[in-house]
Structure formats: structure tokens, C-alpha cells
Design a protein around this nucleic acid. Structure first.
Lengths: 344, 344
DNA sequence: CCTCCTTGGGAAAGCGCTTACCGAAACGGT
DNA sequence: ACCGTTTCGGTAAGCGCTTTCCCAAGGAGG
């Protein structure tokens, strides 16, 4: 960049040395700059519209105030909620957030963590689960370890296998609670839109739901479990497949809200009346989706809070790592899962 | 950071000088490094898991591959869609995105652009309209000018007053088209949930809608224009106020989809049947909201494309600046605005 | 056989800042 | 009056990289 004002210019204009100028501006510890000089330097800096070079500072100080955030897809409201929390907390600590959206490309997380490492980010937050691809996970683990070895702090959300502080949503318990609640409403013929089979977040939710059914002596037949992408279209397609397999299901659990909404669209397109013709529940309680009609029963996850927590964990000092945090969800019953009249 | 491997280490291990190591790794222009040496350096780098220090590179090269992105609220699907476009395009050019969410705090944009400037971002994208607060806009303009004077490239979305490349949504035309379409469907008694009065994006949409009505000899009485925040709750509250003022309206235009959805919730809470009891239209065509029921009539804006375009504009070389880009919207009719039976 | 290019490696000068370390001045205690 | 402390400004050594300039070696041309 050309023409930027440097500390040197400020020092010259104030008639002091570089050291003094720097100290005046940063109020360096255990060192006092005379009132008059400090005044002069500050004035010179203001007049010149001096703006310190962050890279030079990073070099000289050996650290930065950058937090690197990696997530699957910023356009997905699940991730943008977490991102909002990260950014809010980062801002509160004077940190700048550098963000990467992996578009679920395998290996991309590792690449981005590498980029954050090159930038000497002081905090890295990785959001998004993955269970398959052992090799990719190992590489990511290695990269994160290297990052922490260099003095950085990493936190992983929904990826409990990583050797850093982790935050996990209690998917299984949430889905179990939801299963019980649906059972209490009188539902018996269940199906699950199961999401991707390689995402821990998805499989745990299915497992929890299964657990609840089992406790009531129920079960989930294989044809009642349909997997598919964690997206609106994934939910839409999965729902159609399910209807083709067995139209007699009365209650569908989509493992996230976005899929649930896609499923609702599929049901309407097939002429099914909601909620009378089919009960449907989701997971996450995505804010933007709270106003769908009928209101979607779901499990509320404090996504934004999770993002904020991730940053706070990273900033904790003097604690033994890695730590494991679990976050619970809470069942929210809405109109999409009406009480079923007792069979007569 | 401690312990990171430096180029020096690589050079030593390969038995070459720093200069050669650097050239081998970067393939410096108009300079060839012997095949055998390059090989040796690459191997040494790989063995040492060398990762170049981005700050040192920035210092030495005098530029970075950072794009700074400032927007109002990443949790708002409007902004996260634009952000997704920015990130997609940035990634395609090997750029890293540093993002700031201003939470609509006045002056925050200027502060963040300052931060991007300190980091020598090569591109800055500012998203979000504002018409009031002349002083704040002037300061932002000044900061952006300083940024460009230092060699950076800035692009503003929805802020046409700024002295940089701008991308504007043709809000007025979109709202006008929508107004005509609603008129064609037979609607006559209109009201508008107008959003914040200080946001250009909002006022332009109202103006366009007014224009359409005027062309048909209609008008918008003051009591039929209710302002409020650009949020779900803003829409909810505005709708209630509107119903209190005049329950005889048959068609409501909410100036964005998020407000429209809030308005739908308010209507249902008041026992109004949708879409029979009230037609409602929004603006933006937020992807997540495409599945609300009844389907929301709206004006589609290519938000993600706008984000990508912003980055492309910034990267254009050898063009005269500032340039002005206009992006058109397209009316999408859905079930929320049924055809009104002709009055008999 | 000597000179002039060409090829390719190394030394070193920064990039803009922070921070020991040094040294001068001012002050108080004895 | 002298010495030990403070107090506070300046000097300069990096931080890790890129890149200009210089120089050695080897090949081609006269």
C-alpha cells in the first residue's frame, strides 16, 4: 500500500523518537510517558490520521487479535446463528473474526485452519460435525494440535473427537425427549428423515429418537428411516421417498428444522393436510423458521450462545485442556404435532 | 507464537540461502531456481511442515489477500445470503474474508473499515443501507476514500451515496412491479409495513409501491403506512398496529420477507385466515422463507449473486471508478396473494 | 585463449512496529 | 557536596519474509 502514514511520520511531526511515539500511543506497561509529550504525539497522530499497521504490530508483538471461524455454510441459518454468537463475543473482546465457509468440502476445514495458522489467529473455532473420513478428521486434529502448539486456542463445536476444547449439543437426549413428547401426544406410527449418515449430529439424533421409541416398546423399521442431505431439498426428497414407501405413517421426525420445512412442502405438494394429515417435528428451533405454519415442534438449541461460549472457552486462562462442554436442548411443542385422538 | 518453523529453518535444512528458499517456494517471476535445489527446498519445507507467516509476507510484499466485509447482522438471512456470495467468490480468488457485524450500531461500519485498513485488506465490501445520519455517512465515505487512496478497493451495497463502486438493488422498480401485479390480481385496499424510515432500502420500496398505486389512480393514506424495524418482531408489531387502525385492508405489502412473516404471525394470532382473510406480499425472496404457508408472494433479489458481484467489481483492473451497478428484482407470485374475486 | 553474456545463488536492505537496554537529568538523603 | 534512585527519552535489535543488487561460474563468440 502506498502513502499510508507510519509511526515514523508521527514521531517526526511530534519531534520525538519512534520509541516514545509508540509508548505514547500504546501506554506501554511499567513505563510512563511525560504528559506533555504524550499530548504532542497524540495530536500529531490525529492530525496525520495515523492508523497503525496491524501486520507490523503482529510481527513485533508476536500475536494478533484475530479469531478464525470455520463452518459448513454461512447461508444455512444454523451456522449463521452460531456465527452471530461468535462475532458478538469476539467484538466484546476486541477481536476480529476471519471466517471461512467450507461448503462441506472434505479437507477444507484443515486448509482453512492452516490459513488461520499462517495469520497467527489467537483463536480458532471449528463448527460442524463429521464422523466418516477418518483420514480427514485426523488431519484436522493434527493441524489443530499444531495450532495450539504454537500458542493458539482452538474450540470445536459438534466434533467431540478433536483434541481441543469441544462443545457438543446433547443431540441424543434432545431427540429422546422429543420422542417421549410425541409418544405422549398419542403418536405411534413414526418415521425419521435422518439426514446424512456420516454426520454425528444426524446419527445421534436418530439414535436418541430410537431410544425413546424403544422405551415405549416401539421400534423404527428400516423403511421408516430415510436419509438425505441436511437441506431443505434434502428434506423434500426424503419426505417424498417416505410417502412412496409407506403412506400410513402419522408422525415424522426430521432431524433438523430445515429438512422439516422441506418435508412440509413435500407433504403439501402431495395434498396432505397439515397438521391433520401428518404430524411433523424438527430440531434446532431455527429463529427464521419459527413462523412457518403450522408452527413447527422442535428441540431448541441455543445456537448463538454456543458460538459465544466457544469464544469464551478459548479465552479462558489457566485451565487444563482439553475440556468438554455439553449443551442441552429443550423440546418446544407447537401446532405441527397435534394430540392424536385416542384410537377407539 | 512460539516454535513456528520459519523460512530460515527450511533454508538451513535444505542447505541454501533464504533468498533461494523463498524463490523456490514462490516461484518468483523472471527468476528460475535450479530443479534440484527447488526439489530440496520443497522437501525440507514439507518435512518441517513449514507454514509461511502471513504477516511477514504482508509486510514484505506490501499487500494481502484479505477482504473485509461489513454488514448489519449476520444472523439475518438477507445479509447471510450476501455474505455467502462474497465468501464463495473470495474463496475462488484465494482471498480470506474478515467479517464484521455492526448490529446496526451507528459508526460501527467506519470503525470496522478502519480495522480492515489497518490490516491492509485489499478489498472492502460494505453492505447495508442508511440515509439518515449525514455525519456518519460522511465519516464512512472519508474512511473508504482513505482506504482506496492507500490502494485498496471498496464496494458498497445499497449505499449509493458512497464515493466507491456501488451495487444498488432496484427497489423502486421491484416494488412498482409488485404493486402492478397485486392490482392486476384485483386488490385495491392496500397497506404497507414500511420498515425503518431511515433506510433507503425501505423508503425506496415504499416509493415504488406508491408509484404503482398512483398509476392506477390509487393512493396510500398515511394511516395505511406503518413503519417499524426490519425484523420479524417489527413486522409483527406493525401488523397489529395496522389492524387496529383499519381492519378493512385486503392486501398488505411488507417491505421485506422477514417482516412479512412476522405480519403473518400477527394475522394468525388475530384469527385472520390466510390467505383468504388478507393478502400479503414481501420483498427479497429469502430462501429459508420460501416454504412458509401460504407461499409468500415477493420480489426475488439475487442476494448471493450480489455478494459475488461485489468481490468481482473490486477485483476488476484498469477500469474507471467509481462505477454504479443496478440489480433488478423479479416479482414472484405465490399463494399468499390470491386473485380477488371481482366485486359484484 | 580471452571477453561478454547468461544462468542462478547469496548477502543484505528493508516492510512498520515493539521493546529491551542505555544514558542523561533531576531529585533526595546523608 | 556526593552518590544512589528514579524518571523518561533515545538507540537499535529484532519479528519473518521478499526482492534488489552483486557476484561466481560456465558457455559462446571472436
Amino acid at each position: 500500500m502506498t502513502g499510508s502514514v507510519t509511526l515514523h511520520d508521527v514521531a517526526r511531526r511530534a519531534g520525538v523518537s519512534l520509541a516514545t511515539a509508540s509508548r505514547a500511543l500504546n501506554g506501554s506497561a511499567n513505563r510512563v510517558v511525560g504528559e506533555e509529550l504524550r499530548e504532542r504525539v497524540l495530536r500529531a497522530a490525529a492530525e496525520l490520521r495515523y492508523s497503525p499497521n496491524a501486520h507490523a504490530q503482529a510481527m513485533a508483538r508476536g500475536r494478533t487479535n484475530i479469531v478464525g471461524l470455520s463452518l459448513h455454510d454461512i447461508a444455512d441459518p444454523y451456522f449463521s446463528a452460531v456465527a452471530a454468537g461468535v462475532m458478538r463475543e469476539a467484538e466484546a473482546h476486541g477481536l476480529l473474526v476471519t471466517m471461512a465457509s467450507t461448503e462441506r468440502r472434505p479437507g477444507a476445514e484443515t486448509d482453512y485452519v492452516g490459513a488461520f495458522r499462517r495469520h497467527w489467529a489467537s483463536v480458532v473455532v471449528v463448527v460442524g460435525s463429521r464422523t466418516d473420513d477418518r483420514a480427514a478428521t485426523d488431519q484436522l486434529a493434527e493441524e489443530l494440535a499444531a495450532f495450539e502448539a504454537e500458542g493458539g486456542r482452538a474450540v470445536a463445536v459438534s466434533q467431540p473427537r478433536l483434541p481441543v476444547d469441544t462443545i457438543s449439543i446433547d443431540n441424543q437426549a434432545g431427540a429422546r425427549d422429543l420422542g417421549h413428547a410425541l409418544h405422549d401426544l398419542g403418536h405411534r406410527r413414526f418415521a425419521v428423515l435422518a439426514g446424512p449418515t456420516d454426520l454425528l449430529t444426524a446419527t445421534e439424533r436418530v439414535a436418541g429418537f430410537r431410544e425413546a421409541l424403544a422405551r415405549h416398546g416401539g421400534r423404527l423399521a428400516p423403511e421408516h428411516v430415510v436419509s438425505g442431505p441436511f437441506t431443505r431439498d434434502g428434506g423434500y426428497a426424503a419426505m417424498r421417498r417416505l410417502l412412496d414407501r409407506d403412506p400410513d405413517v402419522t408422525c415424522v421426525f426430521a432431524v433438523n428444522d430445515v429438512m422439516a420445512v422441506g418435508a412440509m412442502a413435500a407433504l403439501r405438494d402431495r395434498g396432505v393436510d397439515l397438521p391433520a394429515g401428518m404430524a411433523i417435528a424438527g430440531f434446532d428451533d431455527i429463529a427464521t423458521l419459527r413462523d412457518v405454519n403450522p408452527g413447527l415442534t422442535t428441540v431448541r438449541i441455543p445456537l448463538e450462545e454456543i458460538g459465544a461460549l466457544a469464544v469464551r472457552l478459548a479465552l479462558d486462562d489457566g485451565v487444563a485442556r482439553p475440556r468438554v462442554h455439553r449443551v442441552a436442548g429443550e423440546v418446544v411443542l407447537r401446532a405441527s404435532t397435534p394430540r392424536l385422538p385416542p384410537p377407539r
